[in-house]
Every structure is written in C-alpha cells, then in structure tokens.
C-alpha cells in the first residue's frame, strides 16, 4: 500500500504522526518504509532518533535521487541505527522499518518527466520489498504533491497499487477550514488530480483526514478547568464538529483523532509502549490512537466513497 501524508499548514503533526503510524505498522509485522519528501525541512531523522542521518543524506537523499544525481537513494534501517534506547531492540515478530531520508539542502523543485519516471521506478522497487510505503509530503500544495498525483495517475504503473491519502489538520477553526480547502478547494488535491487524469470519485474516496493534537475534554489535562472554561470549550468543540461536517470533513471522513500529547509538545518523537507503561510520561490514549490509525489505514471498511 502506498500512503501519502499531506497537510495544509506546517505544525500539524503530520510528520510525527506519520512516523508513529509507520512504527505501529512495523510493530504489527508489516515491512514498512518511510519516504521523507518534505524537501527543505526533513524532520524524520529527528523523529526516528537518527542524528547522523541528516549529514549522511547530503547528496544521497531522495532529492538527489529524483534529480538523477545518485542512482540509489540512501536507506536507513531504523531498528539498527536509531539511538532511541527502546527502538534499538527490535521486537520479535515486527517487520522492517526503513527510512529514506530527504536531503537537508535542496528545497522545492519543479517536477518534470525525468523526476516522475524516477519517482515511479523507486516506488515500484520499494513495493517488491515493503507492505506499506509512507510518503511524507511537505505542507500545502507543493511540487512534491504534484509529483505524487502525477505518479499515481491512471496511466501510470503506480495506478495498480492501492493508494491512500491522509490529510492532517489540528483541531482549530483555521486548520479545519484549511484542510477542507486543501482537498476540495480550487487549488486542492482533487481538482489537481482530476486535471492529471484522476477519476474524481476514486481520488476523493482515497482521501481521509487525521485530526492531530485534539484536546480530549474528558482527560485530566482539561477536566480540571474552571466551569466557565469547560463550558466554553465544550461549546467550541461542538461548533467545530458542526463546521467540519459542513465542510465535508466530519467524523465519517476522519480516519483517526490523535489526542493532544504533552510529550509531543516538547519533542517530535515516537511514542513507545514503554513511554506509556514504564516511564509513564506519555498517555495511553495517544498510544491507542496511533494504533487505531495504523489499523484503520489497512481496513477497507474505513475507505472508499462515502
């Protein structure tokens, strides 16, 4: 399965949640690779705790590969290379977890036929080895996104691979509107895809939303608020839900809702089971929500035209 992670704005938790998603799929036994297409600001090495990879990827990352400067993009085995003490012991029964980092320098670039072919060939090659290929796109309607849409258009070989899109947004008015705009707006994913030959129904059926950093009003973090605050927050939450539904990104199109996690407010990282049960710095709900997201990604009953 090919998964594109998109968001309208930065700071939506797209990269960190996608990395956690990849981690959960690998824990469940899938062979997973994570492609950092967030050209210009690669965060994946930090999330997977791979400090040396940023320098190592210089001239050998995905950006260099797509431009034809290197024949093979760098691959990093996360289990083997991470400095995270828990991740270093690969759990038995888990699948492979491999990062293909982006170059630090390079930024955005205009896509051409050559990039497109190289992108398609890379995904086809990875498909032989991995169950799940997660591609983290930069925020907004980027060139990386156009490349993804062009590469998966009906006439391409990639059209034969199951493709799913995750659009991340935070649980605020602006973020909800921006996410809806990114998908169904004039400059949105669906219009851009249709212009490249995609079928509108099929493409929009392959898009789901992921709400990130959502305040869980039942959790101790928020339930201690003053009554006035509490009432206000519940009211806003209800309004937001109504607005999201009106924009077509209501509960049925939301694949998962990731609660606001204090650990992730301080540091972009993978939330491990040890963080939840041993050191207890992270919330169990976060772990469960990431697990739900990973499970639903592969569950057909959450996908298709609504």
């Amino acid at each position: 399965m090919l998964v594109f992670a998109a968001s309208d704005k930065g700071g939506t938790g797209r990269s960190v949640t996608s990395a956690n998603l990849a981690y959960h799929r690998a824990l469940d036994g899938d062979d997973v690779c994570y492609l950092d297409f967030d050209f210009g600001s690669p965060t994946a090495p930090a999330v997977f705790d791979l400090p040396d990879v940023l320098t190592e990827a210089e001239g050998k990352g995905l950006h260099s590969y797509l431009k034809g400067k290197t024949g093979e993009p760098l691959r990093v085995d996360v289990w083997a290379r991470t400095e995270h003490p828990v991740l270093r012991t690969r759990p038995s029964g888990s699948g492979r977890l491999v990062l293909l980092p982006g170059d630090r320098t390079g930024g955005e670039f205009v896509t051409d036929e050559e990039n497109l072919h190289r992108c398609v060939d890379l995904v086809l090659r990875l498909k032989r080895e991995f169950d799940v290929i997660v591609v983290d796109l930069s925020a907004g309607r980027s060139y990386a996104m156009d490349l993804a849409l062009a590469a998966t258009a009906p006439r391409s070989a990639l059209a034969r691979i199951t493709t799913r899109w995750l659009v991340y947004h935070r649980w605020t008015r602006q973020h909800v509107m921006a996410a809806a705009e990114l998908v169904s707006g004039k400059q949105g994913i669906v219009r851009a895809g249709v212009a490249m030959g995609h079928d509108e129904t099929a493409l929009s059926g392959a898009i789901r939303f992921v709400r990130a950093a959502v305040p869980d009003l039942q959790s101790p973090l928020w339930s201690q608020a003053r009554p006035e605050q509490s009432v206000w927050m519940h009211e806003r939450d209800r309004q937001l839900e109504a607005m999201a539904a009106g924009l077509g990104i209501g509960k049925t199109r939301a694949l998962a809702s990731i609660p606001l996690e204090p650990v992730l407010q301080w540091r972009e990282q993978l939330i491990t089971y040890e963080d939840v049960v041993d050191s207890r710095v992270a919330n169990l709900e976060t772990w469960q929500a990431m697990g739900d997201l990973a499970q639903r990604l592969g569950d057909d009953k959450y996908w298709g035209q609504l």
Binding site: D31, E72, V120, D121, L124, R125, E129, D131, A157, I161
Partner: peptide, 26 residues
Amino acid sequence: SVAESLLARISRAELLDYDTPLNTAS
C-alpha cells in the same frame, strides 16, 4: 544503474499486478 534501469523498464510492464505473495529484498 544500467542493470537497475533495465529492471525498472521491465517492472513497468502492463501485465504485472505488483501484488507479490511475499516481500523480498533484492
């Protein structure tokens, strides 16, 4: 890269379904 691009060329063929029975590294 010559060998790889030949593999890539064959891999794009229309009669392949990419639904391999098991994941294998090259």
